[in-house]
Computed example of a mutant assay.
Amino acid sequence: MKPYSILIFDWDGTLMDSEAHITQCMRNAIAIVGTEPRTDAEIRHIIGLGLEEAIQHLYPDKPRSLIRAIADEYRQEFLVRSKGGSELFAGARETLHALNAEGYYLAIATGKSRRGLDKVLDETGLGALFPITRCADETHSKPHPRMLEEILTDYDAAAHDALMVGDSEYDLLMARNIGMDSLAVSYGVHALDRLLQHQPRGHVDDVTHIPDWLTTQKDKK
């Protein structure tokens, strides 16, 4: 018996090592708009939120017009102008295929836009593994639990059937807000001590450790 039937993954910082790329795109967008810069640490802090909500965190006192201008430039940077990119974490592809072969249903709940997620799913060739996905620009942003509610509805499942896997406090808090177990990954954007404050069921230090961790949970559910 598997401990869960559905594994819901965050994307950036959990499956893809995209921190540097996101940070550079945001720095470029801010510079183009011409407002005060933000440090890499400040930008890393908001990775995982929906785009405009993330920028609002960076500039809480700025007008909506400036927030939207930065968001527009970020989209151009990420989707059009940027020639670089990000790679999946080592072993992520193999781990996902192994979990799929074990009979887990897979889903994604991400702060990316629909265009952004579709782009990386196409580039990585992983789209077929994730029949159900939710993005911040088509529902509520994390940590609101609406993404998870919609995924559970699509799978006709309850919160106790699923596990949220993520690298940010927004992922774990979203799971707590719906009463879903979560698994923290310590190699992403937020430090482990910060993640543990949100009471995940456990944590792993490498994406390839997820199958073994799930095996240890079979007798604990």
Rank of each mutant, 00 (worst) to 15 (best):
Y104S: 04
L129M: 04
T153R: 08
E169M: 12
A98G: 08
T124I: 03
G166A: 10
C135S: 14
D118Q: 13
A136Y: 02
T110W: 14
L121R: 07
I108S: 06
C135P: 04
N100H: 15
R146P: 00
S141R: 00
G116N: 06
A101L: 11
V120A: 11
T110E: 10
A128K: 11
R146V: 03
T110N: 11
Y104R: 07
I132W: 04
I108D: 05
Y170F: 15
L99F: 03
Y170K: 08
G127H: 05
K142V: 06
D137R: 00
P143V: 03
E169I: 13
P145A: 00
K119Q: 15
A157D: 09
R93D: 15
R134N: 05
M164C: 08
S141L: 02
G111H: 01
D154L: 12
A109F: 03
G103S: 06
Y170W: 13
A128G: 04
C135D: 01
C135I: 06
V165S: 11
I108Q: 07
L152V: 05
A128T: 12
G166P: 12
L99K: 06
S113V: 05
L117A: 02
D161A: 10
A98I: 12
A158T: 11
A158E: 15
Y170R: 09
E94V: 04
T133D: 03
R146S: 00
P145R: 01
D156E: 13
A101S: 15
A158C: 09
T95M: 15
T153C: 11
P143T: 03
H144L: 04
D137H: 03
D122T: 13
P143N: 07
L96G: 02
F130N: 02
H160T: 13
A157F: 10
H97R: 13
Y170E: 05
L106I: 10
N100L: 06
T95E: 13
D122I: 02
T133V: 14
L99G: 06
R114V: 15
D122R: 11
S141A: 12
P145K: 01
L117M: 06
V120T: 15
R114Q: 14
D161S: 12
Y155M: 07
L121G: 03
Y104N: 06
D122K: 12
K142Y: 01
R146Y: 00
L152P: 09
H140P: 00
S141Q: 00
S141W: 00
L106S: 06
L121C: 07
E169G: 08
A159M: 10
K119V: 07
D154P: 05
K142C: 02
E138V: 14
T110F: 13
L117I: 13
T124F: 04
D137C: 02
A159S: 14
I132F: 06
M164I: 09
F130A: 04
E149M: 14
L129H: 03
I108R: 09
A157W: 09
Y170L: 08
A159H: 11
H97P: 03
G103E: 09
G125S: 02
L163N: 07
H160A: 14
L129I: 07
L148E: 08
V165D: 09
E102F: 12
V165N: 11
K142H: 04
I108E: 06
E150M: 10
R115T: 11
M164T: 07
E149A: 15
L148H: 05
E102G: 08
R114F: 10
E138R: 13
L96I: 02
R146N: 00
V120P: 02
I151N: 01
R134C: 05
G103H: 08
D137K: 01
Y155S: 06
A159T: 11
L106E: 07
P131Q: 04
